[in-house]
Design a protein around this nucleic acid. Sequence first.
DNA 1: AACAGTAGGCTAACAGCGTTAGCTTCGCAA
DNA 2: TTGCGAAGCTAACGCTGTTAGCCTACTGTT
Lengths: 188, 188
Amino acid sequence: MSGRPELSPLTPRAAQIASAARELLEEEGRDALTMRALADRLGIRAPSLYKHFPDKAAVEAALIEQGLAEMGAVLHAALEGTAPSEAADGTGAIGAVLRAYRAAALARPRLYRLTTSGPLARERLAPGLEEWSGTPFFLAAGEPYLAQALWSFAHGMVILELDGRYPDGSDLDRTWAEGARAFAARRT
Amino acid sequence: MSGRPELSPLTPRAAQIASAARELLEEEGRDALTMRALADRLGIRAPSLYKHFPDKAAVEAALIEQGLAEMGAVLHAALEGTAPSEAADGTGAIGAVLRAYRAAALARPRLYRLTTSGPLARERLAPGLEEWSGTPFFLAAGEPYLAQALWSFAHGMVILELDGRYPDGSDLDRTWAEGARAFAARRT
DNA sequence: AACAGTAGGCTAACAGCGTTAGCTTCGCAA
DNA sequence: TTGCGAAGCTAACGCTGTTAGCCTACTGTT
């Protein structure tokens, strides 16, 4: 399992704000996450938020930490769960990680996009968190280059699906399975 | 080769504006592409732009069409070029398409991100253009599911590289090669 | 008990954003 | 000559993130 790094500490009030921000993001999308709308949801005025976070990017960073932590937890759990059985479809740990990744991303699509899109302000994130959330890919692939390629495939699949880039009627289950077989065949 | 669909027609003035928009995007980034900055570059005021485009999204759509058209041209050319020799590294057409894709994206990173990130307003694009730009993946993979998986891998690799998501010192050449081998091995 | 400091609200305001309304000015065609 | 459309303009609106400065209430100290 290997312990998850601690998230950046938040004051109780800041945690409430982050929680409201997450609700707002997941219910209404990234564009709706404005400082005024967030303040409204808390019954205060926008400038008061700046007593708790230095700027909007810091609020987003708190959500990104949640996104990384939850994705990491899901992936680590998926690896634990399927280690004994060693897979239903012959793709083993690689298939398990891919299925878990897709399910977790589609369950929280807007948080996923916030977490993974655009340049990442690493200095705002808890150290080690990003790496920890990615290690299941390494564990599943057994080798860092295949692991990075596998992660890239998974992210590409998810983000293109979320953005509606695939033609209508695409059988994405089958595309995922095809990718899983391609990568699993290279596992040593 | 198969002829490229025509891009949406623009009046001469609109084409000038789109050209200036592209310069602005590539030189200063997406955030710098504002209607006022674009107008400045043309020596006019922002509201005058609305005589030529209905809104900012229409300007962006013109750039997205350029991005799709240029990417498609590069990929089609790459397939033509390597069909006879059949590859230096054993990955054949798949390796050729991947190398061309990466090179084209990294040569115009901000246009690539604009073209491929976020929901796509298909009704604003020339019909068939998006499909045409993607067909080289199908031609290289020989099969639609592998083709979609291959495209997803390529996009994931590029966008994660552009966003600086890989750890410092990652040997991305090797990661690309690993992915190319995985997909090439499944080509029938 | 009086005082100081701090946490956490508030209003007013600024610059920048996309966008609209309404006006003017120029060149061409009937 | 008249009319009209193309293409510019200014002023303004509502939205955004953010800052400055003020006020109130609680908390701990002397």
